[in-house]
């Protein structure tokens, strides 16, 4: 089989994914698509997928089989775009859309500007459990804990109203003036820009802390209301 990447291409749309099939027999394309889905399960899980099949001709049973197979894997096929009138008819028969609005690539990129002070902020109002990964170009605020095994990667500051027990990376785009704040950072794994923050004496870190990097070294500032 040829390189699967040349057979299908996957793009992000405003509200889902657009999978474009290359020029090859359907059996081969189908294999490549399934391979991609199997290899990137979490990426496809729960996705809304539009399929651009080019000039391929699909009959009802092919397409309904594909739709069912995809739905077994948690993928919602909602549209099939085709140059072939037969395929278009087929997808209409199955209640699938045949047109999608043009993808706007600039909307996929993260809504963050590089200028500090102008950065947008992402608010997360819950505890982040193991396996959750939040990546954001601006600041991130979490109202809740960051549990072990969860990761927050932010271009700007990371403020956590809760315990940080997972991994936090502030200034991930290289901004050393970023800071991490948390109510209990005794079990945190922290990075600021390119620096790995080494935690000193543990007992103190159970109090609210602001951690920043000054002259290439981590600085911990305890906060108390007194």
């Amino acid at each position: 089989m040829a390189d699967p990447n040349s057979l299908i291409s996957i793009k992000g749309l405003r509200d889902g994914l657009l999978v474009t099939l290359g020029n090859a027999p359907w059996e081969e394309l189908r294999g490549a698509l399934m391979e991609q889905i199997a290899a990137r399960q979490s990426f496809f899980q729960g996705a809304r997928v539009a399929l651009d099949v080019g000039a391929q001709i699909f009959h009802v049973n092919d397409l309904s089989e594909l739709r069912d197979t995809l739905s077994e894997r948690g993928i919602n096929l909602w549209a099939v775009v085709s140059e072939s009138p037969t395929t278009e008819q087929t997808s209409q028969l199955l209640g699938l859309a045949t047109r999608i609005s043009k993808p706007r690539p600039q909307e996929i990129t993260q809504a963050a500007s590089a200028e500090s002070g102008q950065q947008t902020s992402l608010f997360i109002g819950r505890t982040l459990r193991s396996g959750t990964r939040i990546e954001f170009g601006g600041h991130v605020t979490v109202l809740g804990d960051i549990n072990p095994g969860a990761e927050v990667i932010a271009g700007g500051n990371v403020i956590v109203w809760g315990r940080i027990r997972g991994a936090v990376h502030a200034g991930a785009n290289g901004d050393p003036s970023s800071a991490v704040c948390g109510l209990d950072v005794s079990a945190a794994q922290m990075r600021i820009a390119g620096e790995v923050v080494e935690a000193p004496d543990q007992a103190e870190l159970r109090n609210p802390q602001k951690i920043s990097v000054v002259d290439g070294r981590a600085r911990f500032e305890s906060w108390s209301a007194e």
Binding site: R129, S130, G131, T132, N147, P148, G149
Partner: peptide, 12 residues
């Protein structure tokens, strides 16, 4: 407990 936390996250 770590694994339970992961599973709870998926369930949510």
């Amino acid at each position: 407990v770590r694994d339970a936390d992961r599973v709870i996250g998926i369930l949510e």
